[in-house]
Amino acid sequence: MSVGAGEILALVGPSGSGKTTTLRTIAGLYRPAGGRIVCNGSVWFDSESGIWIPARQRQVGMVLQSYALFPHLTAIENVMESLSGMPADARRAEAAALLSRMHLDGLDDRRPALLSGGQQQRVAVARALARRPELLLLDEPFSAVDRVTRRRLRAELVELRRELPMPVVLVTHDLDDVVRLADRMCVMHEGRILQAGTVQDVMAQPASATVVELLDLVDDMELRT
């Protein structure tokens, strides 16, 4: 599978299908037996030549499903941990700007425990963006919030992605997320890719009955026939 600049690729499939593992492999958190990962021309992983760039050296931003904010650090400190190679003042200013961009003004000095689910997710996104990633990875970014918040966060992400130059890989089991956010999609099942392509193509022409089933398109198909 591949994803281009400014594109959002959605990995969909039931739990246990390997989509999160795929994401962790791209991030460098999991080392598979074989394969090859190339980002922006640089090889991150190649089982044949034995190349393995560890996660901390990959220019990748990741939002984990649990958000995994550092509980003892404030919102701004969480974001600052992703910024390196500049003086503390500059880091603080940039982190503040990112939080503000995520509509989190005034919450800089709160610890995660005092933030709502939606606010925590935005801090996690800000922290991922602070890395100035060449690739942004989102693992079920809306699963830990209620439906109303989910809709608002999704709208924010739609807006945000227009400004983002880097490719985004999104793991989700919700087709709504795919339809509203993704350009391309990749249907996974039991560790294999069943079908990959643009969202329209996959939705219009599922490659197999399993894909149809997985995408829960049965009703639509019946309607069409």
Binding site: R24, A27, P54, R56, G61, A68, F70, E81, A130, R131
Partner: peptide
Amino acid sequence: SPDLRDAAATCGM
């Protein structure tokens, strides 16, 4: 949580 170690790694720490 192991998630925090993953997060730290993807933050480039």
